[in-house]
Amino acid sequence: MYETAGSLVSNDFVLLFSPMSKMKNIIWPQVILFGDSITQFSFQLNGWGSEIANKLARKCDVVNRGLSGYNTRWAKVVLPRILPPTASNPPVAVTIFFGANDCSLEDKNPQQHVPCEEFTQNLKDMVKYLASAGVPNDKVIFITPPPLHEASWEKECILKGCSLNRLNSVTGQYAQACVQTAGQCGVDVLDLWSLMQKDGQDFTVYLADGLHLSVKGNQFVAEHLWRLLESRVADLPFILPYWGDVDAKNPENSLLSD
């Protein structure tokens, strides 16, 4: 035993945690969720992001990089700050979930509005950047904005002192552009706008305020996104031994081995 900073430290502790130790750091794979508020809020209770993170516990870190209010014009600027081009551990998957702000009506919400042609190009630019940072196209998943319930969203707009600033038909144009761009880039896409309205179903059950997701909407996204993610993470091993497999007499033998 020896004394440091006013406390006694065991020699075994010093040996185990010595900077000279040959222990290898554990590199946790990552799935990055990149998007606007629908992604930012996805780690709330019953959120789709938290559901994905739960499925990947002990296998992968699910990193929430949702930025409320952002559009693709701003997203492509900050993407290199979120995933540096020199990252030593490229993510095993990246979701790109934008469009709900880009599709704002220009005359009602010019700050967030991005023309559809630019929206398309921004998506392509982000895919191109990710490829340069070690994330190939087959590890990227686009997610289209969900449908918009105008009557509900208009109530929210009025509470904020503005008029209705989005239309479901326009949201659909951006969703379609996202799907087409995914095909051009060779990436998978989760078309929420179409799926939530399939066969004329009442999509309002998926929305909390006409734009953001309800609990049922979060469940819908988690279920459908997992179908696309599962194959990308299927080979990820369980990190660190199951507790029942740890050598209780010599735990270091189990916990410090590769």
Rank of each mutant, 00 (worst) to 15 (best):
I26Y: 08
Q176F: 07
L8E: 15
L33T: 00
K198F: 08
L8N: 13
V62D: 00
T39Q: 05
A248M: 10
G134H: 11
L225M: 11
L45C: 10
Q111G: 08
S68P: 13
D202H: 08
S214E: 07
G6D: 13
K55C: 03
A87T: 15
Q180K: 12
A151Q: 12
L213D: 00
N109F: 05
Y242C: 14
L167H: 08
C103T: 04
A5N: 15
G161H: 13
N137Q: 11
A100K: 00
I32E: 02
N253I: 11
G210R: 00
G186I: 13
W193C: 08
A5I: 07
K22H: 06
A53G: 06
K198Y: 06
A5H: 10
L45R: 12
V14S: 08
A151F: 08
E117N: 13
Y242E: 14
S68E: 14
S254K: 04
L130C: 03
W74Q: 12
P146M: 06
F119N: 02
S163D: 15
K160R: 15
G183W: 10
S50N: 08
Q30Y: 03
Q197E: 07
L236N: 03
N168R: 08
C157H: 04
L192P: 00
I52G: 01
Q173E: 15
I143R: 02
S152D: 15
S152H: 07
D202K: 14
L240R: 14
M20N: 15
V179R: 02
A131Y: 07
L83V: 15
L229S: 00
T181R: 06
L33K: 01
V189Q: 01
E252R: 11
L15H: 08
T39R: 02
L195E: 14
N253L: 11
S10D: 11
K22A: 09
A53W: 03
C60K: 00
P145H: 04
A177M: 11
I27W: 09
V127H: 01
P84I: 08
K22L: 14
